[in-house]
Amino acid sequence: MEDLVSVDNLTFSRGDRLIYQDISLRLRKGKTTAIMGPSGIGKTTLLKLIGGQLRPDSGDIRFKGESIPGMGRKRLFEVRRQMSMLFQSGALFTDISVFDNVAYPLREHTNLSEQLIRLLVLMKLQAVGLRGAAAMMPSELSGGMARRAALARAIALDPELIMYDEPFAGQDPISMGVLVKLIKELNDALSLTSVVVTHDVTEVMSIADYVYILADKQIIGEGTPEQIRSHQSPLVQQFLLGRADGPVPFHYPAENIAQQLLENY
């Protein structure tokens, strides 16, 4: 199987704080890869690294075999037209309508006529079920609708890679179901390569072809959903089952409680 993206021995830190230590993973062409991990572990950071917005301290990230950190700005912008990212907040442009948001990348990167753009935009909006909301402003949309509108914008240029940053976070069960269905359908219909970053275990296990689990600056487990479910590591099991305490402790490291409570006496 061919890799669309491969991350090799990546190390990255924000200031003094180490976020990733020597991790490697690959996104296979035409498949949906899930990357799971607790909040603040650096999942968004990983997507930004793949998108070339951040540079790794060491290691390499390759898109179709070409090193992303090694690209010049011009080449990077060319490559980014083949990828697309759905941000956690949707990141719709708040000063223009839903229609114009979806039309934005088309107007920006193609010389298509307004007529053709209208056609394409309406088709993309139809695909996410928001054709009726074309004239609305982003502030008028519910959270789930905003994310679907952003999805329509993300697929406007028919990218090869689409990165979803926590697409399910803060969604009601219905919107969540809709999004799960959309991600799956788009992946199959457009033969996209998808990567879904999330901490919602059940949703993503149903659509992922391959799963990576991140914890403590490293990948602690990987495999198909079945392999992951029967994974040996207690860490992985704690994450999957959502137990409060386990190898990831409930308590932030602190001194002995009895000692601290008595300190002032």
Binding site: F77, R80, F87, A91, F93, Y104, E108
Partner: peptide
Amino acid sequence: LMKATEQLSSLEMMAVD
């Protein structure tokens, strides 16, 4: 606010400066 709501990052990812 555009920065906080990731609109600027989003532009970057759309290959728009």
